[in-house]
């Protein structure tokens, strides 16, 4: 288990990470999510012992990384943002060197290197100079390096950057496989990636933790509301009056003109029941329904919502409460924050 307690990092007078605390449980994949410059890399650098923290503690399996760095660092495999490879070395040579500095004994070294190369599909590159490898392959060599020494914890800073879509899929699969005997902290700003592989998510923004929960919980925290997009042929006023009469249906946040008498309405509804009701009432009112789709609020909404709030550290509970009280304005908020993102 990795315990991160009240970690703070000051760069001069610039507060990069503010008093963050979270735990990483054994054999889980923790997604570390945040916009660019949120303090992800700084936190990872502190967890791996590369940077000292201004205050706070990082405890790896009961070992404090500042007090006993060499023991703690043995438990960690780190893939930094820029793969730490020497361009003048050959792939095998490089991996052998890394195994050496990590204290892998001679007998196990060959086996571990072969194993790591196998897992990342770089066996054919064994004799190539790293200088001549493409970015994707360098990234994979960097990843292979992190696996050497069989560390219990793997800390991966944006591991799929620079890979092509096939490689991205392979690496994600690999990370899931690694869960069997490793604990993984994965940092990324790619939401699909986090959604695809992680068990739990910590969202960080402006150096503060905004949320620490499972993906399901976070998604439901934005509100159980569904967004219904419905394309109807019929008089606009009639449609609006019909829909407005149904309980649990909000005023449309968006009405788009398609052609004469055909509009697309975006409304927020309380649940499946409301959707059925809308459809049946519109049909009885003599409107023709051309298209219906419902959108569930996703991790993306959570992310946008949490990372665009600028001040105040809030517990998840507070955030949840806030969501409930703000439920009616949800759509406006989201639309506004989406614009901000753009």
């Amino acid at each position: 288990m990795i315990e991160i307690k009240n970690l703070t990092k000051l760069y001069g007078s610039n507060l990069a990470v503010k008093n963050i605390s979270f735990n990483v449980r054994d054999n889980e994949i923790l997604g570390f999510l945040g916009p660019n410059g949120a303090g992800k890399s700084t936190t990872m650098n502190m967890v791996t012992g590369y940077l000292p923290s201004t205050s706070g503690k990082v405890i790896i399996n009961g070992i404090d990384i500042e007090e006993n760095p060499s023991e703690a660092k043995k438990l960690i495999g780190y893939l930094p943002e820029i793969p730490p490879v020497y361009p003048d070395m050959r792939v095998y040579e490089y991996l052998s060197f890394v195994a050496g500095i990590k204290g892998v004994s001679g007998g196990k070294r060959k086996e571990q290197i072969e194993n790591a190369m196998e897992r990342l599909g770089i066996k054919d590159m064994k004799k190539r100079l790293i200088r001549n490898l493409s970015k994707g392959y360098r990234q994979r060599v960097g990843f292979a390096q992190a696996l050497l020494g069989s560390p219990k914890f793997l800390i991966l800073d944006e591991p799929t950057v620079g890979l092509d879509p096939n490689q991205v899929m392979e690496v994600r699969k690999l990370i899931k496989d690694l869960k069997k005997d490793h604990t993984v902290i994965l940092s990324s700003h790619i939401l699909q990636e986090i959604q695809a592989v992680c068990d739990r998510v910590v969202i960080i923004s402006h150096g503060e933790i905004r949320a620490d929960d499972t993906i399901e919980n976070l998604e439901s925290s934005v509100g159980g509301d569904l967004t219904l997009i419905i394309k109807v042929k019929g008089n606009k006023d009639k449609v609006l009056i019909t829909m407005g009469a149904i309980p649990g249906v909000s005023i449309p946040s968006d009405i788009t003109y398609v052609e004469t008498n055909v509009h697309t309405y975006t409304v927020s509804i309380a649940g499946e029941e409301a959707r059925k009701e809308i459809i049946s009432r519109l049909v009885t009112a003599g409107c023709e329904i051309i298209e219906v789709s419902t959108v569930k609020s996703s991790l993306e909404d959570v992310f946008v919502k949490l990372t665009t709030q600028n001040s105040g550290k809030k517990g998840l509970r507070a955030l949840l409460d806030e969501d409930e009280s703000e439920a009616e304005f949800n759509i406006d908020n989201d639309a506004a924050s989406e614009e901000e993102e753009k």
């Binding site: 660092k73 043995k74 780190y78 730490p84 020497y86």
Partner: peptide
């Protein structure tokens, strides 16, 4: 310059 310092500093070497 090449970012390999991270590798050395996060390795068990002092």
């Amino acid at each position: 310059k090449s970012g390999t310092e991270v590798l050395l500093m996060s390795s068990p070497l002092s």
